[in-house]
Every structure is written in C-alpha cells, then in structure tokens.
Amino acid sequence: MLIKALMDKDRLTHEDGEPAANTESTVEFIAPATFAAVRVIDSAVSNLLIRAGADEFNVYNVQLAAHEICTNIVRHAYAGRDDGTIAVLLRISHTPRLVIQIELRDQGRPFDSQSAAVPDFDQPQEGGYGLFLARALLDELHYRCDERGNLWQLLKRL
C-alpha cells in the first residue's frame, strides 16, 4: 500500500452528523513521490473536506491545488528520482469557520521561484498553469526550504 503511516484524530462531527464547533482533525501519512500517489493524496484531501461538510466547489478547488503542488514535487523536486517521498499533513478545524491546512514535505531539489512566472494568457502554453492555479485557488500558499527539505504550506478558509 502506498501509505506508510496514518493517524486520524477525528473529532469533526457530533453523533448527529453536524460539524462540531472548535474541533480539529488531523491526518498524516507518507506517500511515495509518484504521479499515481498524487491521486491518493488529492483523494485524501477531498475525502476529509467532504466529511467536514465542505461544498463540492470548494472541495474541488482545494483538491486541485494540492494535486498541482504534489505534481510539481514529483515532476520538478524529484525530477525522475523514484525513491522520493511526500510527507502529508492535513488538518481541518472548525473555529467555527472551516479551515483546511495542508503541509507537503519532500527531500527533493529546492523550488526555483524563477521558474514560476505567471502564464502568458494571450499565448496558450503547455505548462506553467499548476502553480498559478494553486495560488489562485487557495487563500495562502507558502514555501520554504530548510534542513529537513522542502515544505509547502497550503491554507484555505471555507
């Protein structure tokens, strides 16, 4: 199985199925850095949001944003390496507003911000939309590189 470890501290709903206020749910797992695993990661995002009561539109947007960042990690950070991993942390909180935070950590090459120009929309291009979409669909997108590798932090308030 793709996932090495799973921790689900699920305190999201009351027994009647209604979202609880001021609660938090966290899911953590490590996935191989493959395109197939990107689907597993984005499905985990989608499932968590659906369970938390997010609407279809927001579920899609956050799922796609996470999908695009993971795709970039596989394609650019690991760039053909087949031994990489992505450590995933998904945290949903109702405070009472529904907020999802996603952390994606990898040990590939650092992100090159120079390669992430805004697409030229007048000239249709075959690449460069991924990061643009992630930025457009999220409220916050942060990146940093430290001694533990690359860390992407995504945040969406729903």
Partner: peptide, 13 residues
C-alpha cells in the same frame, strides 16, 4: 470530473 494542468497542457498541445 477533474481536469488538472497536465490535462490542460494536452488541450493546448
């Protein structure tokens, strides 16, 4: 049901 930037790149191609 789901279209990402890689799929969009195919359309442009």
């Amino acid at each position: 049901p789901f279209l990402d930037s890689s799929g969009m790149a195919v359309l442009v191609s």
